[in-house]
Each structure stands twice: as structure tokens, then as C-alpha cells.
Design a protein around this nucleic acid. Structure first.
Lengths: 117, 117
DNA sequence: ACCTATTTGTCCGTATGTATG
DNA sequence: CCATACATACGGACAAATAGG
């Protein structure tokens, strides 16, 4: 996994790392089910602190790209495809929300609240 | 803002802080547009590190509860109500997804991807 | 326009805990 | 039991945005 960091730009290091790892996954450089390099290892090879890599990994986990488990590491998740009717419901929701001027972030909250009930 | 932390339970400190601050907002203890205590200040009064409070604040920001800005602090956001039809579309999506066994996290991703197009 | 204080943002380092294999 | 690897928390340093004088 070849990653180059640019310390001259304002983009945070953890964001650069997350972006590059994400691209590596998209390219198929790291395949589904495979492990990413351990955080300490990648941190050392990039010359950054382990926390910076862990922050990037955590962001990728929140984005649903990878799974993190202690002792095991970071595993690339499968990007499952949605059923047609679920996809249709998503499109419908986005369409209605857009018409009403409802922000995307609010939809996420509404989903969480609705799912919690 | 009276918060008590329990170091005996497994719930992380930052999660406890986020939960209690969230409850304070719900109770109307801190009203919309008002500022939460500065991270350093709250950290000191709780006897924890500033990073722990900042992590809690960041989580609340990601959840759409507050807005964070350097120099200004943490401001409580308004919790807008959804239009009926948007709410109906959300319920429909959740229902369809549940029937198909689609996870909530996947819906969030689908929303983001759908909105990006 | 300038300076200063405030406050969050990022990054580093270290230590300890905890789940996995 | 032991090594691995992420998770949490602490501390310190500096940067960057904001507000106020």
C-alpha cells in the first residue's frame, strides 16, 4: 500500500490517510476480507504517530468501509448491493426530502431515531 | 451542567459525557443557541483530560446536536421537525429495509451515495 | 488595521486496558 | 499463557479560527 503524505497542504494527515486507503480499496489493491496493515506498522512506514492512523481507520469504519477488531486488525468489508425495493425507498426519501428542503444530515438523524423505536 | 462520571463501568468516559450533555439538551437545561461550557473548563470540573471532552463534543457534532467552532465554542443546534411526508418516507424505508434484513448502517451509506449523485 | 485572549483542531508521545488468535 | 492489535485516556505542544478591545 503506497501512500504519500503532503504536509504542506491543510488537509489533515488522518484525512489523507483515510482517503488513500479508501482509494486503494476501490482500486482493488486490497480486496474484500483482506487485512489492512496494522496501525503501528503503517504509522511507522509513513513516519506518523499511531493515533493518526487509528483515527483514519476509525473514520473508515464509521464510513462502513472496514471493520476494526482488537487483536485482529482492520478488515475490508464487502460492499453489499441493496435490494431493488430498498433502493427505491431510498430514492423516494431523497426525492421527498429534496422537495421539502430537508438536509441530508437530518435524514440520518431521522433514520436513527426511527430505527431506535 | 451537573454531570457525574462512573469510572467503574465499562462505558467510556467520552460516551458518558456525550450522553449526559445530550440529556441536558433534551431536558432544556441548555437551550438552543446557547453555548456549552468550554472543553477545557468542563474537563477541569470533571477531572478528565480536555481530549476526552473534545471527543464527546465531536461525537455530539457528528450526531447533529451541536456546532463546534474554534474561538467560539460549542453551540446547541435547533432540532428541526420533519414534514409529515418526509417522516412517512423515512418510516417506509425503515419498514422495507427491515423486511429485507438490510442493516441501518447500510441505509446511511445508501443515503449518502444517493445524495451525492 | 492590529493585537490579544479564547477555544477548538491536529499531532505527537506514553501508558494501560481488552479482545483476538 | 502469550503475542498481537485496536481502544481509551492522559499529558503536552502548536496551529487556526473567532471575538473583542
Amino acid at each position: 500500500m503506497l501512500i504519500r503524505l503532503d504536509t504542506t497542504i491543510s488537509e489533515p494527515l488522518y484525512a489523507q490517510i483515510a482517503r488513500e486507503v479508501c482509494r486503494a480499496i476501490m482500486r482493488g489493491d486490497v480486496r474484500e476480507g483482506e487485512r489492512l496493515p496494522a496501525a503501528r506498522e503503517l504509522a511507522h512506514s509513513l513516519g506518523v504517530n499511531i493515533h493518526t492512523v487509528l483515527r483514519a481507520y476509525a473514520d473508515l469504519r464509521d464510513a462502513g468501509e472496514i471493520e476494526l477488531r482488537r487483536g485482529r486488525g482492520a478488515v475490508v468489508l464487502a460492499r453489499e448491493t441493496l435490494h431493488d425495493d430498498v433502493e427505491a425507498a431510498v430514492r423516494n426519501l431523497l426525492s421527498v426530502a429534496r422537495r421539502q428542503g430537508v438536509e441530508l444530515e437530518q435524514l440520518h438523524r431521522a433514520l436513527d431515531e426511527g430505527a431506535a423505536e
